[in-house]
Every structure is written in C-alpha cells, then in structure tokens.
Design a protein around this nucleic acid. Sequence first.
DNA 1: CCAAGCACCTGACGGC
DNA 2: TGCCGTCAGGTGCTTG
Length: 272
Amino acid sequence: MPELPEVEVIARGLSQTLAGRTVISVKVPGLTRLSDAAEVIVPGVQGQTICRVYRRAKVLLIELENESTLVFHLKMTGRVVHGERRDINKHDRIVFVLDDGSWLIFSDMRKFGYVKLFTKQLLENWDFLQKIGPEPLESSPAELVERIAGRKTSIKGLLLNQSVVAGVGNIYADESLFRAGIHPETKGHRIGHERALKLFAELQDVLKLAIRENGSSISDYVNAHGDAGAFQNSFNVYGKKGQQCSRCNGLLQAVKVAGRTSTFCPHCQPRR
DNA sequence: CCAAGCACCTGACGGC
DNA sequence: TGCCGTCAGGTGCTTG
C-alpha cells in the first residue's frame, strides 16, 4: 500500500527515465471508477512530451509540455511501472506508449486508484490538493507539532488525516508512534510538547529510512521499475500483532483506532 | 469539530 | 474440494 515513501520512490525512478519522453499512443484496457474517461485522457496526452515527475502527499504527478498534468492516486493496490513493452494483463488500466518504444503502465487490482488529467488551472484549484496539509519532510517537527495542538482526536487519527500532515498512512503512523513511545489512542492535546516533537522527528526519520530502502512492499507495491522495496523487513510493529516487541520482548497488540488496525507495544507505548 | 459506519474493490486466508 | 466469512486500508460520503 503506497504511502509517502513508496510514491516518492516511484516518482524519483520515473523522473530519471521519463523526462523528455513523448507519448506516442495510449491503450486503455479498462479504467477505474474514479478515473477520468479515456476520451479526456487520450487526446490530452497524445503527442505530449513529459517535463517533470513529482509527488505531493500520496499522489504521483506527471507534468506535460502543454502544462497539463497526469495525476495518479494508487490507493491500496495501484502500480505505475515503466519498462519494456509486455503483454497486457487483467489489472492493467491504461498504458502510455512512449517514443522509445517503452511502456508506462498504470495497473490496479482493486480499482480504488485513479488517473486524471488536469489543466494547470484545474490542478491549482483541485480541492483534494488544496485540503492537504504540509509535507512532513519539508516541515520542522515544531511546525508539525502545532498542527496537532489542542486536537481532541486520537493521535493515530491525526497522523492519518491528510489535512493535518501529508502522506502518512497506516504503516508509517504505527511505526512512528512506536518509535516515540506513544499509545495510538492518546488524544492529540494530551501529548506533551517534548514528546510531540519526538514523534514528528521519528516520523521524519522513518520516512527517510523507508525512502532509502526503496519503500515497503506488503503485497502489491513495486517501484517504477517493478522492483519490491525492503523496508518491510525493518518494521517494528506494523502487521506484527502477537509477535515479540523488538525493544522489550513483550507481545505486540492490535486495536482499531480511527477505523484502522493499529499495532503497538503495550509496554513501550503505555496509555497515559 | 468529531466519531462511526459504509461504500468502493479483489484476492488471500482460515474454518468447516 | 469448495464455499463462506473476514480482513486488508485511502478516501469520500452520510449520519449523529
């Protein structure tokens, strides 16, 4: 499930190989429900040269020569992979055929993700992006602490809330809470300043480490070249309910917080 | 302002 | 063998 680090790794990988490539044709085996129609995307990208590939929150953006932008949200199982021409498979949603013969493929088994095409103006006014909070790797921990000050929601819910901080999903929320020693159900306003600073410093740390490790591959994630990430091997808590805590050897527990499974160590992350 | 619950999807997995 | 229920989780929406 791609969160900030996974989308960042994809964007960096694509940036190396896509800049300057031109879209020759488009194949549309079947789009997802929330995607723009093929009638919008195909004529808008044909003949266009790719200028820039970047990420904002969990969204992947590919800017074209005419200042329009292809936007991908991968949600749970989406992939964007660039490589040699290959057979179309059942989960492929759209294929961009490039001028060197290579293919850029968006596939998504569960069809939660989407691809949309925006003009410059429409992208600037897209309410989804306008609601997104600051990038955690481009903000200081002190700035991020202000975003949770006085909030009565659980810290887990705040971390997952994209308008509070961008790009954090279930994996990196649980991992940073473990590192900071904070119980996921702790209310935002009950976290002391020092501990909150620690939380966001740990969040930054874990995001950077994950990017360095090529992201986390749980089930579907692969980078722009189809390779799995390795950070899942460094998880302390995510998906480890019932296993031993790496710090105290106690058993990890799972609870639902903000509608999501949250795995934590009751000893290292005590309820206050 | 906040929580809870559902919807959207498919595949993996466990129980019987 | 296969059927059935549950779970995975990002986001939008509704309801309270």
